[in-house]
Design a protein around this nucleic acid. Sequence first.
DNA 1: AACAACATGTAATAAGTTACATGATTGG
DNA 2: CCAATCATGTAACTTATTACATGTTGTT
Lengths: 187, 187
Amino acid sequence: MPKVSYPRYIVLGLLGIQPMSGYDIKKWVDASFRFFWDIGYGQIYPTLRVLEEEGLVRINIVEDSGPKKKVYAITEEGLSTLVSWLHQPEEKELEILLKLYFGDKLPGEILKEKILAFGKTQKDNLDILEKTDDFLSSLPESKTSKPYLRIVSSFGRYTYESRLEWVTETIRRLEEIEASGISRGGK
Amino acid sequence: MPKVSYPRYIVLGLLGIQPMSGYDIKKWVDASFRFFWDIGYGQIYPTLRVLEEEGLVRINIVEDSGPKKKVYAITEEGLSTLVSWLHQPEEKELEILLKLYFGDKLPGEILKEKILAFGKTQKDNLDILEKTDDFLSSLPESKTSKPYLRIVSSFGRYTYESRLEWVTETIRRLEEIEASGISRGGK
DNA sequence: AACAACATGTAATAAGTTACATGATTGG
DNA sequence: CCAATCATGTAACTTATTACATGTTGTT
């Protein structure tokens, strides 16, 4: 099972928004999704080198203002690699957020399906939390840990319930985007 | 900067609740906090071996029913190592949940302080999200990505706001535990 | 002149995941 | 007797983090 490499798609996806240097990529990540994923130079630069070797990005040295920059742009091949990854099923918990971030490259219908599937997962998680609570209830009342274990499980409930609310709002927003009829990338 | 090793404290903390085998530890994690941390046998068994070498846990082979188990119990030294880690400041985002899980080993006052500090961090995150939105607003309207980037940032808002609600409820619950006056581990 | 920020990169280390290997016991 | 679960462990691999190294440019 070949695993997706996230730095690879983060970099490719951001270059799908606009051409950037490694340094710019780090700045963009810090400015706009630092809390979901972080990525260091130790991952960015080697990733850019590999992507370039594979022909998924093209390098362009810019020397106008400041120190010279290596500005990378996504190629046709890179774009189709990105889009093909976007279509694949998600494997990690918040991978959907990354895909949504690059959502203008996916047909609205597919995006909505994916968001709804994410919602289903959150509902399933809530069900599993009930089983966790059953397990916790089964512990003897004398266990001093017991109330603390419950508090931790309540964090899960808050988390998953808020995600379900987000799903509802997001579906609404996606429909608004569709209704406004801006052209988007399809397959 | 020596970094905390999580498998180490997960294992030590669980053994602080009750003696268990490596297999039991995995079962316990799966049953009660699979969604916050996962841990595989590939991490549990080597960790147990190290903890045993350091004298933080004691091994006890049990052969009564089923295949023979290696049941590990925490030692005095192990307990004080655990408690000293519990007092230290948190370094990772959800580390507080792990500490709260072992909360009966900490004085209630310190636990409350830590939860409030976690709440402060969530509030700070909300402030930073506003800066993210400023950044997103600065992007040209023609960028087809723009609405998607906003939806992702809204996920952050849902997340942090629900955590703030959880903090409020948790403080209340901790005060209830204190009021019920069960004896707990102090310094 | 000094300092912050720009800009690119490598090497070493730490952590996490997956696959593999082995064998005992229990329930149907 | 067969499958599932119990039970322990290692090796290989992938991924992520940290520290280091180097040099430029703009601001005070």
